[in-house]
Simulated scan of single mutants.
Amino acid sequence: MKDLIAKRYIKALSSVANEDELREYLSCLDILSNAYNISKFREIMEASYICVSTKKELINKVLDKELDAKFSNFINVLAEHKRLDLFCELKTELSSCISALNKEYKAVLISKETYEEDILKDIEDKFGKQLNVKLKLEQITTSNDGIKLVVDDLNIEISFSKEKFINDLKHHILKAF
């Protein structure tokens, strides 16, 4: 649920800011999300008995720089709607938004085997060319037979499973009789 809310806020922010400003905002959200992991900061942000102006002052002190008008208004809107607990989700969504602007996406290759860097680079290049994007491939090893390539931001999942292939083959053969 928080992801959907964060997506709406980032959509609004990205509609009024250019890419350089978005990168600056990403660094600010990174600082705030790291600060949110500190229990005292999190308590203050979530406390209903602390006024909004005090929370905004603390955010300004944590960022330790003068905020531009757009990001300052963004923080004000978050504070007014009691959404100061979304810094981590906002950072993730803004990172995805910037990646989408540059057509750079993260892909995950899940397989039983570990592949060499040159094979991973080849997969990145060929699959990225097919999609007309730039991919950064991360590999995860698992105990399952088969291979799966997932690009979450593009909602793409390609998989091949040995078990599924055998079951489909058996089903096809049995249908023939």
Rank of each mutant, 00 (worst) to 15 (best):
L32G: 09
I50D: 01
D68K: 05
F41K: 03
L26R: 13
E66G: 10
K55E: 06
E19T: 15
S48T: 15
V108W: 02
D64W: 04
F74T: 04
E43K: 12
K106Y: 06
N76P: 00
F87W: 06
E93R: 07
K82M: 03
C51I: 08
S33H: 11
V77G: 05
D68L: 03
Y115C: 01
S96Q: 11
N76K: 10
Y115P: 01
E21W: 02
K55N: 03
E113R: 15
A69R: 07
I119M: 11
E57T: 10
S72T: 08
N102C: 11
F71C: 12
I123N: 01
S111H: 00
E57Y: 05
V108L: 11
L86R: 07
D122M: 13
E24C: 03
F41G: 03
V77H: 08
S48G: 12
Y105T: 12
R23T: 10
E89Y: 12
E80T: 04
S48M: 04
E66H: 07
K103Y: 07
A47D: 06
E66V: 05
L26I: 02
L101H: 13
I50Q: 02
L26C: 08
V52K: 09
Y49Q: 08
S72C: 04
F71T: 11
K70C: 15
Y115V: 00
V108K: 10
I59F: 03
D64M: 04
V77D: 05
L63M: 08
K65Q: 13
I75C: 02
L26M: 10
L84Y: 07
S72L: 05
K121W: 01
D30H: 10
F41M: 05
I98V: 13
A35L: 03
N34W: 01
T92C: 04
C97Y: 06
D20M: 12
I98P: 10
C88F: 06
L58I: 10
A69Q: 08
C97R: 14
K55H: 02
F87K: 01
V52S: 10
I110R: 01
S111K: 00
Y36I: 04
L109F: 00
R23W: 02
N73W: 04
Y105S: 11
T114C: 00
D118S: 15
H81R: 15
N37V: 03
E19Q: 14
E116N: 13
L67H: 06
Y49N: 09
I75N: 08
S111Y: 00
A69V: 09
A47Y: 04
S72F: 02
D85L: 03
K112W: 00
I31A: 11
L94K: 06
E104L: 06
K103G: 00
I31N: 09
H81M: 08
C51M: 04
D68F: 09
N60K: 13
L32K: 08
L90W: 10
D30C: 07
I44K: 01
L63N: 07
E117C: 03
Y115L: 14
I110M: 01
L90V: 03
A107I: 00
Y49R: 07
